[in-house]
């Protein structure tokens, strides 16, 4: 099943007189259950692509389809609802709401969908258990480590059962050990829930979990290859590259 489809998508940013081309006529299709890693140097257009798929930004040319819906035909409110129901976000700096506990942070997207308080709490607690934070549900973000905060953010992205989770360098603020744990978690969530992941990074160790690798350069997709089943030796080797 196709979750995301981009057709001839371009995005320019006006900087001075000559606009910067952040994405240039990109075509892309993401299928359900894929774990896609998006690579590319700084400034290659990774964040721009994620923002467009996340219905937070509009292309100058082309069309983005989520779940078969053309984003250009949606109102701001409809895009919000689309994000709420079909898309999950994981941010580099976690972006938890500081005054809310872990449980409340995870419940919040559900309450935006007007899910009843009791059910919301229950589902949030479940999601936190899935990310291994059952014992920390009543802590506030400032009482959690970076890795724990990112787990809360992952639970928050997961709790609405989205089709796709977009993660923009989610491990950039974490040490390598924690990063690997987070990657393992995302990998297993991908296998267990079937949610599609699109994951922007320039950490190479992430590649070991990928089912598909995209590489961006100057707004073009210069590489798009599926990852065959890697053997164990390869996985260890790739894992140690970073450690």
């Amino acid at each position: 099943m196709t979750v995301v489809k981009l057709q001839g998508v371009s995005r320019y940013f006006p900087v001075g007189n000559t606009p910067i081309t952040a994405l240039d006529k990109v075509d892309l299709t993401l299928e359900k259950g894929e774990f896609v890693v998006l690579r590319g140097a700084s400034g290659s257009g990774k964040s721009t692509l994620l923002n467009l798929i996340g219905a937070m930004d509009d292309p100058n040319e082309g069309e983005v389809f989520i779940h078969g819906m053309a984003l250009s035909s949606l109102s701001d409110k409809q895009k919000s609802q689309l994000r709420s129901h079909y898309i999950g976000f994981i941010f580099q700096s976690f972006n938890l709401i500081p005054v809310l506990t872990a449980l409340e942070n995870v419940q919040y997207p559900l309450s935006l969908q007007r899910v009843a308080n009791k059910e919301g709490k229950y589902r949030a607690a479940q999601a936190l258990e899935q990310v291994g934070l059952a014992d920390f549900i009543h802590r506030r973000p400032n009482q959690l480590s970076g890795g724990q905060m990112q787990r809360v953010a992952i639970a928050r992205a997961l709790v609405t059962k989205p089709d796709i989770i977009l993660a923009d360098e989610p491990t950039a603020n974490l040490d390598s050990e924690t990063s690997k744990q987070i990657m393992d978690l995302l990998g297993s969530l991908n296998r267990n829930t079937g949610v599609t992941f699109l994951f922007a990074t320039h950490h190479d160790f992430v590649l070991s979990r990928a089912s598909r690798i995209l590489e961006l350069k100057d707004g073009h997709i210069v590489k798009d290859e599926p990852v065959q089943h890697l053997n164990l030796v390869n996985q260890i080797a790739l894992g140690e590259e970073v450690g």
Partner: peptide, 16 residues
Amino acid sequence: TQEIGTIRAIGGTRSE
């Protein structure tokens, strides 16, 4: 500001 962006990203409408 960043919190507002987050709320909007995870599905909060303008009226929210």
